[in-house]
Amino acid sequence: MGSTFSTSASEDDDGNYTTQVILNVYDLTPLNNYMYWFGVGIFHSGIEVHGLEYGFGAHDFPTSGLFEVEPKRCPGFIYRCSISLGTISVPPSDFRTFMENLAAEYHGDTYHLIGKNCNHFTDDVCFKLTGRRIPGWVNRLAGLGAVCSCLLPESLQLTAVKQMPEYHVCSEDGSECPSVTTPQRTESDDADHDKHLLSSPSSCGEVAFIKEVPR
Results as ranks from 00 to 15, higher is better:
E48N: 04
N139C: 00
S200M: 11
D173M: 10
Q163P: 02
T97S: 15
N119W: 01
P201M: 13
L158K: 15
T7I: 10
E176W: 14
F5I: 06
S202D: 14
D94A: 14
G145V: 06
S202V: 11
L129M: 01
D14W: 14
P165N: 06
G65K: 04
C81A: 13
S6E: 12
E105K: 09
A191H: 02
T4G: 05
T186G: 02
L141T: 07
A208K: 12
N16D: 10
G46K: 01
Y79T: 04
H120C: 07
A160Q: 13
Y36D: 15
P201D: 07
I114F: 15
I83E: 07
G143D: 03
R215I: 02
L23E: 07
S200I: 11
L85R: 03
R73Y: 05
D123N: 10
D189E: 08
P71H: 01
H59Q: 10
G136D: 14
K116G: 01
N16K: 12
L158R: 15
R80C: 04
H196D: 09
L66P: 03
S82C: 07
E206P: 04
C81D: 11
V161Y: 08
W37G: 10
R140W: 09
T63S: 15
G136I: 08
C126F: 00
D192A: 15
S6C: 10
Y26H: 08
P75F: 08
G108T: 10
C148H: 09
K211N: 13
V21Q: 00
C118E: 06
G145Y: 06
A9E: 13
V138K: 00
D173L: 09
V207Q: 02
L144A: 02
L23G: 02
T110Q: 15
G51W: 01
D109M: 06
V147I: 11
Q184V: 14
Y54H: 03
Y167R: 12
T7K: 13
C177F: 11
L144G: 07
V49W: 02
H59G: 06
T29V: 07
K72F: 04
V207C: 05
F43W: 12
T7A: 09
M1F: 03
D192V: 11
T181C: 13
E70Q: 08
K128D: 00
T97P: 03
Y34S: 12
G51S: 04
S3G: 05
L23N: 05
